[in-house]
């Protein structure tokens, strides 16, 4: 079968996969960014014990494969009466893990803020929350854009693990096509090209965002 014909016949199957990959990646990336900001806030505002708690959390997720929380949430939550749909379980697992990494990225960027700015913020009477929201977070997010881009690419590729809980994202579709047709090469080459496209798009997005910052 020619390559063009292959794509014509199985295009819709790939599109479904592309859709799920994109939706889970974008959703999880947004969720993870928010969760990462929350973890940073907890670390900065709750003193020694809060910081230790966040440290422990980060270590836990850094030292375990993502597949673990994916399985755990998908298989164990129904037993405690939380039978969530597979996308929700998978998305949540990705958010929990990537949020841990993102909080570390953001924490590193806090050090890029000149100390005298914190004195300036205190001297005009800003409360800690206002300082975080108006002074710390906007700068930290901008300084973190390149690293957040890398993390998002990793997350994008990790969505392929969601095939393990039967979400019909790209990798799952390629596997299904292989099983149906036996044409493993065609099935996976197309998927590889699609991932390449998605990853390049993600990188361009973050590069443009980085350039768009006017104050640097």
């Amino acid at each position: 079968m020619s390559f063009a014909r292959w794509v014509a016949i199985y295009g819709p199957t790939y599109l479904t996969g592309l859709g799920w990959t994109a939706v889970t990646a974008v959703g999880a990336a947004c969720g993870a960014l928010i969760w990462g900001c929350v973890l940073l806030l907890i670390r900065l505002s709750t003193g020694r014990w809060g910081a230790r708690g966040v440290d422990a959390y980060v270590q836990l997720f850094r030292n375990t494969p993502v597949l673990l929380p994916i399985y755990l949430i998908y298989f164990a939550f129904p037993m405690i009466g939380l039978p969530w749909p597979a996308v929700v379980c998978g998305g949540l697992a990705l958010i929990l893990q990537n949020g841990a990494y993102i909080s570390e990225i953001l924490r590193g960027s806090v050090n890029a803020i000149d100390r005298v700015q914190f004195d300036a913020a205190r001297s005009i009477g800003l409360a800690p929350w206002s300082t975080f929201r108006k002074v710390v977070l906007p700068q930290v997010l901008v300084y973190s854009i390149p690293a957040l881009g890398n993390q998002t690419v990793l997350l994008l590729k990790d969505t392929s693990l969601l095939s393990a809980i039967s979400i019909t994202e790209l990798t799952m579709q390629a596997k299904l096509l292989t099983e149906q047709t036996g044409a493993a090469y065609e099935a996976f080459i197309v998927v590889a090209l699609l991932y390449l496209l998605l990853v390049s798009g993600t990188e361009v997005f973050f590069r443009v965002a980085h350039r768009a910052v006017r104050w640097r």
Binding site: Q117, D119, R122, S123, I124, G125, K134, V135, W215
Partner: peptide, 21 residues
């Protein structure tokens, strides 16, 4: 302390504006 501090203004030797604003 925040309320009291607002009765005073301070300018430092180093540049200390918020760069993103």
């Amino acid at each position: 302390a925040r309320r009291m501090r607002q009765q005073m203004g301070i300018v430092f030797q180093q540049y200390n504006l918020f760069p993103h604003m």
